[in-house]
Simulated assay, not measured.
Amino acid sequence: MADPDINPQMENDEQKNYGVLLYYKYAAIPDLQSLFDFYHSNCTSLSLLGRVRLSSHGVNVTVGGRLRALEEHIEAVKSNALFEGTDFKLASCLEPLDDQVARECGFTSLSIRIVKELVTLNSHPLLKSPEISDAGRHLSAAEFHSVLQNAGKCEEKSAGSDKKLILLDARNLYETRIGKFDAPDVKTLDPEIRQYSDLPSWIDNNSEQLRGNNILMYCTGGIRCEMASAYIRSKGAGFENVFQ
């Protein structure tokens, strides 16, 4: 017998609500196999699809599924002290993705892997990745917006200084074609890279455009800015002011 307190229409609407969840966390993982088992069990039981990458220094997750299942997943992850302070980016949609979009975004299966690096900044095996502890300062969405909106005013006040605000897009060509920030008073640099591992070379070749300026970076989920901002700051004097 149906529960009279449950509205069938509301229940049906909830079942149609889908979403996409992105999050990452840099932290020392003491037991990778245990964490792997958690993700496999949790994501499978909640019918979540997508990609989970685990390494000894953190996790990088992009999964999709029913909105309620994603919310349950977030609560389960939050119960682990390792994920304290994690920024969960959850976007909802009313209908499931069509097959073509699902294939393009990787939501046709669940892939969980233990990897050496969460993101590969440089494909050269002999080059050491920068220290993530040296990453640029985090800004909230409101702070990021405020910096862009007030860029022209700030530069007018500091007319005697050559320091400017540079907006650096850390995404690849495919992503930038979908859309990008438009800030009239801010110099925007789009590296037009095909893959993330091309970014260090672009930074090296364009370092003079960055030197001595305030660099505001953005990507899709945030994790690429972590490593890229650390790489910029590792260049030393003149590259300290990096924000993400």
Rank of each mutant, 00 (worst) to 15 (best):
M1H: 14
M1A: 15
A2W: 01
A2L: 14
P4Y: 10
P4L: 13
D5K: 13
D5P: 00
N12G: 07
Y18E: 10
V20I: 14
V20M: 10
V20N: 14
V20H: 00
L22E: 10
Y23T: 10
Y23P: 04
Y26T: 04
Y26M: 07
A27E: 11
I29C: 04
I29R: 10
L32M: 15
Q33M: 11
F36D: 11
F38A: 09
S41H: 07
C43K: 05
C43P: 13
L49G: 00
V52R: 08
S55Q: 06
H57C: 11
N60F: 11
V61I: 15
T62E: 10
R66I: 03
L67H: 12
A69I: 03
E72R: 11
A76C: 05
A76H: 10
K78M: 08
K78G: 08
S79G: 07
A81C: 09
L82V: 03
E84N: 02
E84M: 10
G85F: 02
G85Q: 06
D87T: 03
L90M: 02
L90N: 04
S92V: 01
L94W: 01
L94H: 08
E95C: 06
P96G: 08
D98R: 01
D99M: 08
D99G: 00
Q100C: 01
A102P: 00
R103Q: 13
E104T: 05
F107A: 14
F107D: 02
T108M: 08
T108F: 00
S109V: 01
S109P: 07
L110C: 03
L110I: 07
L110H: 06
S111M: 03
S111D: 11
S111E: 13
I112L: 10
R113N: 12
I114D: 04
I114R: 06
V115C: 03
K116V: 06
E117V: 00
L118A: 06
L118D: 09
T120A: 09
T120K: 14
N122H: 11
H124Y: 11
H124F: 10
P125V: 09
L126M: 11
S133L: 14
D134S: 11
A135I: 04
R137I: 15
H138S: 12
H138E: 08
A141D: 15
V147K: 15
L148T: 14
L148V: 13
C154P: 00
E156I: 15
S158V: 11
A159P: 09
S161G: 06
S161W: 03
D162H: 15
L167F: 07
L167C: 04
L168E: 13
L173E: 14
L173T: 15
Y174M: 11
E175I: 12
T176M: 15
R177L: 05
G179T: 07
K180N: 02
P184Y: 12
D185K: 13
D185P: 05
K187D: 06
L189E: 03
P191I: 01
E192C: 07
R194C: 04
I203G: 01
D204C: 01
N205R: 06
N206D: 00
Q209L: 12
L210I: 03
R211W: 02
G212F: 05
N213E: 01
L216A: 02
L216S: 05
M217P: 00
M217Q: 03
C219P: 00
C219D: 05
T220E: 04
T220A: 03
G221N: 05
G221Q: 02
G222E: 02
I223H: 02
R224E: 05
R224T: 07
C225M: 01
E226T: 05
M227S: 09
A237P: 01
F239G: 00
V242M: 02
Q244R: 15
